Amino acid sequence: MFLGFGRTVRHDLPMRYNLVPLRTVWYYLSAGGGPSLAARLVNLLGNVAVFVPFGMLVPLATGRLLSPIRLAVLFIPCIAALEILQMVLRVGSFDVDDILLNLLGVWTGFGLLRLYGITRIRRL
């Protein structure tokens, strides 16, 4: 997250951020120039996929099947902190779309947990 995908620390550049919801998502989904299709898929799907396990493992680890809203309340501050760290350390940017995509990943994992019929969790 901080050093992957060829990221390097760039103290000579200003901190970058996007506070407009879906701006980056629409940019990657547009047919115009810009990043390659592979780069777009890595950014969009990667931001979702990396958080799918959290949506499954947190309820299993805590022994409580949280609601999607409670998962959001738990994860949004954590994801936002990671985004802020990327911006402040200048190894990436703060992007509200990344928070939304990561949360979609958490909810996808939670949905898969429910899809597999796990409605009640017992701690080991």
Rank of each mutant, 00 (worst) to 15 (best):
residue 106 V to H: 01
residue 63 G to Q: 09
residue 24 T to D: 01
residue 48 V to W: 07
residue 78 C to H: 14
residue 71 L to W: 00
residue 94 F to I: 02
residue 35 P to C: 15
residue 106 V to N: 01
residue 44 L to F: 08
residue 82 L to M: 02
residue 76 I to G: 06
residue 36 S to E: 08
residue 40 R to V: 12
residue 101 L to Q: 01
residue 34 G to C: 07
residue 90 R to I: 05
residue 79 I to D: 03
residue 97 D to C: 08
residue 41 L to G: 01
residue 106 V to E: 07
residue 84 I to F: 14
residue 81 A to Y: 09
residue 82 L to T: 00
residue 94 F to Y: 15
residue 69 I to V: 15
residue 79 I to L: 01
residue 60 L to P: 00
residue 43 N to D: 02
residue 73 V to T: 00
residue 57 L to C: 07
residue 70 R to W: 00
residue 39 A to Q: 14
residue 80 A to F: 05
residue 87 M to E: 02
residue 101 L to F: 10
residue 67 S to F: 07
residue 73 V to F: 15
residue 72 A to D: 08
residue 27 Y to W: 14
residue 35 P to K: 15
residue 39 A to D: 13
residue 75 F to T: 08
residue 71 L to D: 03
residue 33 G to K: 15
residue 52 V to G: 07
residue 102 N to E: 05
residue 77 P to N: 02
residue 61 A to R: 04
residue 84 I to L: 14
residue 91 V to S: 14
residue 41 L to D: 05
residue 45 L to G: 12
residue 73 V to L: 14
residue 44 L to S: 01
residue 54 F to V: 00
residue 87 M to S: 12
residue 90 R to S: 13
residue 59 P to Q: 05
residue 106 V to L: 01
residue 72 A to N: 02
residue 58 V to G: 10
residue 82 L to C: 03
residue 72 A to H: 01
residue 20 V to S: 08
residue 30 S to F: 06
residue 67 S to V: 03
residue 52 V to I: 15
residue 80 A to W: 02
residue 20 V to N: 15
residue 48 V to L: 10
residue 55 G to I: 03
residue 50 V to T: 05
residue 70 R to H: 14
residue 87 M to Y: 11
residue 29 L to A: 10
residue 79 I to T: 07
residue 43 N to F: 02
residue 23 R to F: 11
residue 74 L to Y: 04
residue 104 L to I: 00
residue 28 Y to R: 05
residue 28 Y to L: 03
residue 94 F to S: 07
residue 108 T to Y: 05
residue 74 L to S: 06
residue 82 L to H: 04
residue 23 R to D: 03
residue 58 V to H: 04
residue 46 G to V: 03
residue 78 C to W: 14
residue 50 V to Y: 01
residue 93 S to Y: 05
residue 91 V to A: 13
residue 100 L to A: 15
residue 47 N to K: 11
residue 89 L to S: 14
residue 57 L to G: 11
residue 31 A to K: 13
residue 26 W to E: 06
residue 105 G to L: 10
residue 102 N to V: 06
residue 86 Q to D: 08
residue 63 G to N: 12
residue 37 L to A: 13
residue 69 I to E: 07
residue 39 A to K: 12
residue 74 L to G: 08
residue 50 V to S: 12
residue 101 L to I: 07
residue 51 F to E: 03
residue 20 V to E: 13
residue 81 A to S: 13
residue 94 F to E: 04
residue 29 L to N: 01
residue 49 A to G: 11
residue 40 R to A: 05
residue 52 V to N: 12
residue 53 P to D: 12
residue 24 T to Q: 05
residue 93 S to N: 10
residue 24 T to G: 02
residue 55 G to L: 00
residue 87 M to F: 11
residue 56 M to I: 14
residue 20 V to Y: 15
residue 43 N to I: 11
residue 93 S to L: 02
residue 96 V to N: 03
residue 86 Q to F: 14
residue 22 L to F: 15
residue 51 F to Q: 04
residue 105 G to W: 07
residue 69 I to S: 15
residue 50 V to C: 06
residue 23 R to G: 04
residue 74 L to V: 07
residue 92 G to A: 10
residue 61 A to I: 09
residue 33 G to V: 09
residue 94 F to P: 09
residue 64 R to D: 07
residue 28 Y to C: 01
residue 92 G to T: 02
residue 21 P to F: 06
residue 96 V to K: 07
residue 76 I to R: 02
residue 51 F to W: 06
residue 107 W to L: 15
residue 37 L to K: 13
residue 55 G to R: 11
residue 64 R to L: 11
residue 25 V to Q: 03
residue 87 M to R: 08
residue 82 L to K: 04
residue 23 R to A: 15
